[in-house]
């Protein structure tokens, strides 16, 4: 009995490991540099922001991290319940299975993350079926619950997303991603293309969900206000490289590099 308690104490006291370890990742397109020399650890429950202008390499980096593109160099390791997997060394089917099981990707355009002709409930329920759920009533009930959590009227469960507004589509995409309780989520400009008022609601929703579920996330955005609201840590990219990183509020309030000072002085954050 006491051994069990000691085990529990030991587990509680043991420092958790990073969920993602990124080592000198680079992506070249011929001579052109997409991104290079990117290295960081991401810990469970931590939200990392990547900011920079168009062409800075932030989207290229995200695609490599999320397994959608293959880096030209470097390693990306994912801690799969104590087993460290080099994701780009895995055979394609194993990587795809891992992505479905443990990761989520929120695309900037909800059309890239949703099936537009399948009902809202089907979009959410499908992910549960991927994970082995088979009971129709339970799947539908959980889908309805998630629609409520992202503030979509569950009465619209049978409507296809093409009949939804942009903001609703984005919230549906978030429900579809989070319903399978991923441990790691990648988001590419999650509030891009939405009205400011809709953005605020969506940001609050994301903030609360990420906190409550203890999800680790990498969020790419060019919007520094979004980064301030959602992220713990920030990386600033320019010309394919990380030029500054640190605590989000510190990077935004006391930027050290000339480029970061220019970025933060150009807008109110």
């Amino acid at each position: 009995m006491s051994a069990t308690i000691d085990d529990m104490r030991a587990r509680a006291a043991a420092p958790p490991a990073p969920i993602l370890q990124v080592e000198n990742v680079a992506r070249y397109y011929g001579e052109r540099v997409g991104c290079r020399d990117v290295a960081f650890d991401l810990w469970p429950g931590e939200v990392l922001g990547v900011v920079g202008e168009s062409g800075s390499g932030k989207s290229t980096l995200l695609r490599c991290l999320a397994g959608l593109d293959t880096p030209s160099a470097g390693h990306i390791r994912f801690d799969d319940d104590g087993v460290l997997l080099d994701i780009h060394a895995l055979p394609e089917p194993a990587r795809r299975a891992l992505m479905r099981r443990a990761w989520g990707i929120v695309h900037q355009n909800p059309r890239d993350g949703l099936r537009m002709d399948v009902s809202a409930g089907g979009n959410v329920g499908e992910r549960l079926m991927d994970r082995g759920a088979r009971h129709y009533g339970q799947i539908r009930a959980r889908a309805a619950d998630w629609l409520g959590r992202v503030e979509i009227d569950p009465a619209r469960i049978d409507d296809p997303p093409r009949r939804f507004s942009g903001g609703m589509q984005q919230r549906l995409q978030i429900a579809r991603v989070l319903v399978s309780e991923p441990r790691l989520v990648f988001m590419d400009e999650p509030t891009g293309g939405l009205d400011v008022s809709v953005q605020a609601k969506l940001l609050d929703l994301l903030r609360v969900l990420v906190r409550d579920l203890g999800i680790a996330a990498v969020i790419v955005t060019h919007d520094l206000a979004v980064a301030r609201l959602l992220t713990d840590r920030l990386m600033v990219m320019k010309d394919g490289r990380v030029i500054e990183q640190g605590l989000t509020d510190q990077v935004l309030d006391d930027p050290q590099q000339a480029y970061t000072q220019l970025l933060t002085s150009a807008v109110l954050v």
Binding site: G246, L247, D249, Q250, D253, D254, Q256
Partner: peptide, 9 residues
């Protein structure tokens, strides 16, 4: 105060 909070470096 901001240095103490880690908000400034």
């Amino acid at each position: 105060l901001r240095l103490l909070y880690g908000n400034y470096k």
